[in-house]
Nucleic acid binder design. Sequence first.
DNA 1: CTCATCTTTCAGTATATTTTGAAAATTCGG
DNA 2: CCGAATTTTCAAAATATACTGAAAGATGAG
Lengths: 168, 168
Amino acid sequence: MKLTEAKQQFISNWGAFGTHWGINRTMAQIHALLLVSPDPMTQDDIMEELNISRGNTNMNIRELINWGLVDRVLLSGERKEFFTAEKDIWKVVTQIVKERKKRELEPMLQLLDKLENVEGDKKDKHVKTFVDTVSSIRKLGRQADKTLDRMIRAEESWFVSSLIKIFK
Amino acid sequence: MKLTEAKQQFISNWGAFGTHWGINRTMAQIHALLLVSPDPMTQDDIMEELNISRGNTNMNIRELINWGLVDRVLLSGERKEFFTAEKDIWKVVTQIVKERKKRELEPMLQLLDKLENVEGDKKDKHVKTFVDTVSSIRKLGRQADKTLDRMIRAEESWFVSSLIKIFK
DNA sequence: CTCATCTTTCAGTATATTTTGAAAATTCGG
DNA sequence: CCGAATTTTCAAAATATACTGAAAGATGAG
């Protein structure tokens, strides 16, 4: 397979993959494109390569920057802004975990804490099932939260090094 | 907070949470409802509680069954079908991981294997960056795949017991 | 076998999300 | 500063996704 085709496939599949994870297609595709591009690219480069509008490109680049996955780069002698993606995949994963934890897990845990204190007689099976379910989700969630914290703090690749040895 | 309100909040927030993970709102809500319900429920119970149509209810229950998160239950003396959700949260997580691994991670790894063998001179920086990126994603993915396999096979709660001690 | 009950399907409709493109705002070299 | 180049915004349009409800299909008690 030729590079052009391979690149095409990578970008298109990464986009589809992203949609299963609550990330929109275009955002994932721009990220994929930057990941496999050796040099920083401009908005126009990206627009042309992916055949998308200026507005769409701009919005999604901004979102990628918010997620900490893409950086604005200023090249001397150039008026335009250039963009580049973090290439260290471990850092990418860490960054995504960090953001999703903050945006999704933490608020959910706060809610569960509150819901666990529902009024009512625990002998009522409706109350009991509710409290038990909420409580077990909360406990698992808290544990996941701690584990992810550790992972984020780890300098070295937790997933790729520690786990291999420990669990084999 | 009263049980009715707490239940309402749990269901509604679980639905919103689900949408960030590629699961549709209704499917997540039905799951949430069954998780906090002590007894199995019929389609009509679910329709009424969530104010959704018969067709929608039916489709989403089926999907939950496909995912292995909900079971059809036949109560003796009853003509109707009843539904119940697995309440052990660890099992729920394991089941979800298993399905998503099969549906998403494995096909992606197959693609990456193929793409890593792209034609072209590795001295060309475009080829090099592409191969390096694909290769590092593939390696991390393979590792995740193995780790998840181990997690799925584990009888005991890998997340809640092993990791606490090992990484503290 | 019959028929009332329950389940499934799916075309049409509604809703939500994404994308466009042109206009407004900003930036910076001269 | 000026004005061309560049970036950003956002209302409208396009697309994708989810939901409804009625009709068709399946089931099982009698």
